[in-house]
Design a protein around this nucleic acid. Structure first.
Lengths: 351, 351
DNA sequence: TCTGGTTTTGCACACGTGTGCATAATATCG
DNA sequence: CGATATTATGCACACGTGTGCAAAACCAGA
């Protein structure tokens, strides 16, 4: 059915190996013969079989990409960056979403191996160590993005979540907040730990303490989890005047949760997100968030992996590489000074 | 590097063809030999090469999936449905996003052909006819979702956008709205045409007319386009009391656009979306929308394609198939009766 | 033990492509 | 024209897997 090299060879009266060489631009084939062959290939709409080529060359020209969830806009933008860089280099993506499910992870690992992708980019901070081990043992070049077990892999991209979280938290402190809560995502692994670390560090640097119940984790990344989390925090005897959310997805749910208990954001309570996904500019009020260079994260990861692939294996020197990309605080309308009632209470407590 | 069938043959002292047969469960190989071979394969972590198998069998066990945009939550959920059904049948997905860009479309077509995917699901209503033709000519079994050129393909899944749009529009009419605008997405092809058709049909059935400027199209699917579109409509001398948006993404931007000119939704103006993506429950106010069975759309498309693949080619009878899935109106808080001022104006106009 | 039937396994080939090495064709020089 | 060097091409093999057909092994009956 599809045109093969043999079909072209028959039409042009040369051997299949000459066709192969001509199409690949081998200088050993004459210009005249090459032209004839290429014209025939063009007329016959020849497209190489990826499988045959892959089998012969031991290269698939495909990069595996593993994300936590395909419907999280954060990952969509990272994938966009990966795709742009990959396409530029003639690679295609084989994408899979792990959904934080070990069974899915195992199927994904198997798929990557069977398809013999040229390398793998893992954009799931909580990808299981066991499956990661399997990929490593198989010999894949691997680049991880914000992976909690990054020390097991030698090529990593990080977004600086500690710094980002510190900036968000400092912003709230500078606004006058003293009761600041953190809402995390327990499925998220390293990412939430970094953001929590930054949160704590900034509060500590400001000489503030955090009540234990001000650090609350939900088990997912959906706005509904954000809403559930806000319910918990807002029910506290002394509720926070600000909530630092693990990310925009949770923050969007927190906004709704505040509305449902009659709290006005930011007049009564400030809410911040993280990531600056598309929707965070369109919430009411628009979210103060930490703007991650999502596409850059993706394209840096892809470039790093492509560099690894371009390196002659014999020349390979063990040289771990770690790239840290920084974002920037984006102040919108979901954060403001705490309500006066909260400040006056604070004063009376001190007397 | 990876274990091959030849490695297992060497260890078990049989030929590679016996290994192949045993692993495939061929009854011609004895139970005893099969067990030995399978144990060795297990111990040696054998995984077949997808390329070799594909080359030999002329089947890749991969379904191509083309979506308009990977960061649109609507498509993410469709893909999720596709993925579930495909995985159940032992298939993997090779996904690509066309971004309404002909150059990308061409690269995608080429990729599908080179990889010899077993079939293709097109979830892009505006996928170019020329590229679609190429896929058809190549002999791919193809299932299209809401494709504007669906008559060129024989296997289609539709979501009933005419009916959905009629329901949304009727809902607004029943609330008392008489000045209803439609905000469309000119890149969207058939989908926006259907939704506009339903909008017009329902207004006509209610004996209402639509000023020309009440039908406005923006050139994209981002909330920013929704905001731009709202700016246009709200500037009209006689602005609408309700806006039917092509989808939730645009509606989210329209909500912000209304806020920016001091309009309260739904007290001053009603806004409806379409699709019921995750975020539409978390907007302020939560969007009235048309809830599409997104995952069902995906899984039906995959099942249809898998059925096509399971059919013996010699038994194939030309039998076009078209599945129409219906959604349901989801009334939330973005729609309400028009403001009294708009109704009183209407009365005086009639006198 | 021999013959025939059944079961099990291996040989040979091939899917489409790439490439080392040998051979054929061409060009140049004496 | 013949010899030598250079250029261009083809042969043969192989990547890993699957399968038709032949051969080998096994079993049962006369």
């Amino acid at each position: 059915m599809p045109t093969t090299i043999k079909d072209i060879a028959k039409r042009t009266g040369v051997s299949h190996s000459t066709v192969s060489r001509a199409l690949r631009g081998d200088p050993l084939i004459s210009f005249e013969t090459t032209s004839r062959i290429r014209q025939a290939a063009n007329e016959m709409a020849y497209l190489p079989s990826a499988a045959a080529r892959s089998l012969k060359t031991n290269r698939s020209q495909v990069l595996g990409v593993i994300v936590s969830s395909i419907d999280d806009p954060f990952f969509s933008e990272i994938v966009f960056g990966i795709e742009e860089a990959a396409q530029e280099a003639g690679y295609r993506l084989f994408m899979a979403a792990s959904q934080h499910d070990p069974a899915r992870e195992q199927k994904i690992v198997q798929a990557m191996m069977e398809h013999r992708t040229d390398g793998v980019i893992i954009c799931s901070s909580s990808f299981s160590p066991n499956q990661g081990r399997q990929l490593l043992d198989y010999g894949f070049p691997i680049v991880v993005v914000n992976h909690q077990g990054a020390e097991n892999f030698h090529y990593s991209i990080f977004h600086d979540d500690v710094d980002g979280s510190r900036q968000v938290t400092r912003h709230l402190i500078e606004l006058g907040h003293r009761r600041i809560a953190y809402l995390g995502n327990s499925l998220s692994g390293r990412t939430t730990l970094d953001r929590l670390t930054g949160f704590k560090a900034e509060l500590q640097a400001a000489g503030l303490t955090v009540p234990l119940e001000y650090i609350h984790h939900v088990a997912g990344n959906d706005p509904q989890f954000g809403m559930d989390g806000s319910k918990f925090l807002l029910k506290l005897e002394l509720p926070p005047t600000a909530i630092v959310c693990f990310n925009d997805m949770l923050a969007i749910g927190v906004l709704k949760g505040c509305r449902e208990v009659g709290l006005n954001v930011p007049d009564d309570i400030s809410v911040t997100g993280f990531d600056n996904i598309t929707f965070s500019a369109y919430t009411h009020p628009p979210l103060t968030t930490f703007d991650q260079p999502k596409q850059s994260i993706g394209s840096e990861a892809a470039r790093l992996l492509l560099d690894l692939l371009d390196t002659n294996p014999d020349d390979k020197v063990f040289q771990p590489k770690e790239i840290i990309l920084k974002g920037r605080l984006l102040v919108r309308n979901s954060s403001a000074a705490p309500p006066l009632s909260a400040i006056s209470k604070k004063v009376s407590t001190r007397n």
